[in-house]
Structures are given as structure tokens and as C-alpha cells.
Design a protein around this nucleic acid. Sequence first.
DNA 1: CCTCTATGTGCACAAGTGTTCACATCTTGT
DNA 2: ACAAGATGTGAACACTTGTGCACATAGAGG
Lengths: 191, 191
Amino acid sequence: MEAALTLVGNGRHFASLGIREVTRQAEVVPTSFYRHFTNMDDLGLQLVDELAVVLRQMMREARSNVVQAEKLMDESVAIFITHVQANRNFFTFMAQGLAGESQAIQEGIRSEMQFFASELASDLRRLRLDEHLSDADLYMTCDLVVRTVAFSLTDILAVSPQDDEQLNRIRQQTTQFLRLIFVGADHWVSH
Amino acid sequence: MEAALTLVGNGRHFASLGIREVTRQAEVVPTSFYRHFTNMDDLGLQLVDELAVVLRQMMREARSNVVQAEKLMDESVAIFITHVQANRNFFTFMAQGLAGESQAIQEGIRSEMQFFASELASDLRRLRLDEHLSDADLYMTCDLVVRTVAFSLTDILAVSPQDDEQLNRIRQQTTQFLRLIFVGADHWVSH
DNA sequence: CCTCTATGTGCACAAGTGTTCACATCTTGT
DNA sequence: ACAAGATGTGAACACTTGTGCACATAGAGG
């Protein structure tokens, strides 16, 4: 799995990886592959499971680090970018999987994002923000937030990890997006 | 190119396609491939060029069909979904390319989206909507709109083309997203 | 009509691929 | 210490792959 991630991080697309290629990178004989996975899709699915762990760690850190609502967005986005940098290959795999060729992997990532959105909604409720929103409208807002951040993933991955200037631009842009969404949520009237 | 699109529409990922595979689908001998392209990346780039045409057609249709600002969003989203259905393979290719393995293809699609966003900004200016927004803020809003719609692409492509119920749900959801964004834009204060 | 260019073909080759099987080795619980 | 299960190995197989070459054909402009 680590070998596959390395290849993905090296510019390859997961869908184009072969068994022999992965085992070569893992410095293991091709036959060994079958001791752990039945095919590449299987490996991908297990990667999704590990991705879930990475995302939850990130969520935990965001929860404990965000103190006041004022800087909520700036800090969350900053934490997101930090985690993407620290797990670049994982997040590359995630970005690829969103439109990948395995429907199962796609669903896995998608459901992980939904989970993230509902957790975010709970958190906002707990912080007593956006109290005028119905549950459905709050969830919709969070869904849009998660999508926006997920999309900015492709921006982050497209620039070199050392290019702090560009990263800063992306960070500000993403924060602006979220700000815009929450201004919308503040003035939202259901119907 | 058509053969490649067919394979992509059949569930394959563009990055995993081989020359022989494509020529087989095109009912042509592998050697013929080299008469038109130097490698698969080259083919992909030409697909991006054609994608640009498809997108511009869609934009043109949206411009001519949207009459009053009231139903602007509903109609635009509806047109988008119609075009995705009519060019499913093209849009699947686009969704894949956003996190694909060819950096050139990625940039092509990305720049196409930017172009779309700036055209949208011009249109809104022309319709005298959101006049209180600075150019930069208006562009940011349009960028977010384009990203949101692009993301909903993955939703559309994930459901069967005949599943009208799900498609309707996606249509409504996307429209809600846009509505939320524009409510935000309405109350946006620059700083 | 005839030539030139674009496109398609058949064949060949070396290299890479997924998967199998029988056999070796390591790790772990008792 | 030892049995058992998990993991790794090497050789082998039938295919598929990308790409090069010499040759055929078709269509268009003079």
C-alpha cells in the first residue's frame, strides 16, 4: 500500500498502476501481492480505509485547535493545508479516486466526505453558530464547505510543496470561499 | 479520439488506456495511431481542445436561454445537466483529467475553467447584477460557482443517466448551492 | 491523368503483464 | 521447543504491450 502511494505521489495515476509495478516498488516479488490483496481494486479499498483514519486525525486536530469562532475558518483551512502537505500521497490518491475507475473506491471517498460534512454540521450546532438554519440547510452548507475544500485539494496538489507563495494564495482563496459561503448561510432564508 | 472517449465512458480511466486498446476500439491497426498522435498524452491534449468547444457551446446556449435574472440559476443548472448527459463521455474525461496523471491535460482543463469563470463574471456585470462587488470579489464568486458546478459533475456521473429522480435531486442540490453562494455575494463586504 | 501526401496495413521484436504452483522461511501461540 | 499459519520466493505460462519498418492504398491539386 505504501508503495502504491509512493507511485501515486510520483505522478502516476492509481488506475494505471499494475501489480508487478507496485511489488517492484515495494521490493517484493509479484506473487507476494496475492498474500494481501486479490487485485488492485482491493488494495485501493484498503487505502480508502486508511485515508479515513487520516481524515479523522485531521478532524480531531481541527476540533481541538479551533478556539473561538472568529478565526475558525482561517485556522481550519491552515490545518487542512498542513495535513495535505504531511500526507501528500494520501490526498493525491483521494483526489484521483473522486473520478477514478473503481466505483467502489469512488463511493468510499464520497461517503467519507459525507461523514465529514455531517460531523462539521454537528460541531457548528454545538458551537451554537448558525442557529437560525434548519438541520437540512445546515447540512447543505457544510456539504458545500467540504466540497469547496476538497476542490482546493487539486489546487494544492498542483503546486510544488515548497512554493509557499502559491500555497499562501490558495489558503487565502479557500478561506475567502468559506467566508462567502458562511455569509450566505447567515442571511439564508429557507422556503 | 472517439474510441478513447468511448472507453472512458465505459468506466475506464483515461490514464489506464493503452495505444493498442484504443486502436482496437477504433477498429484500426495499432500502427495507425502514430499517424495522428505521438502518444496517449498527445491524444488527451487534443481531447481537451475539443472539450473546450463543447464547453463554449454550452456557454452560448446558457447565455441565449437565460432571460430574466430570477430563474438564472435554475435554468443554467438545468442546461448544464442536459449538456453533461448529451456529452457524457466528454465530461467524464474532464472529471478524470482534473486529477489525472498528465500535468498538461490538468492545466488545460483548469485554464478552461478559469476562462469559464471570467466569462461568467463578465455576463453578470453586463446584467448589472452584484454591482456592489469589486472585480476581484465578483471573480472570486464566479470561481466558486464554477468549482461547485464542476464538483457536481462527479455527482451526475456517479448516477445512471436514466435515474431521473436522482438527477433531479442533484439539480436541486446544485441550485441550492449556487443560491447560497449568491446570497453570500449579495451581503458580501470587502475589506 | 498523374503525382504527392496522408492514412492505413502486416509483420516483427523485445519487454512487460497477471496469475499459477510448489517450495522456503519467518513469526507467533502454546 | 514445536506446530501452524502467515508471508515471501523462483520459475513458468500464455498474453498483451509499445514501437519500428517496408509496403499498400486512397484522395486531392495541378
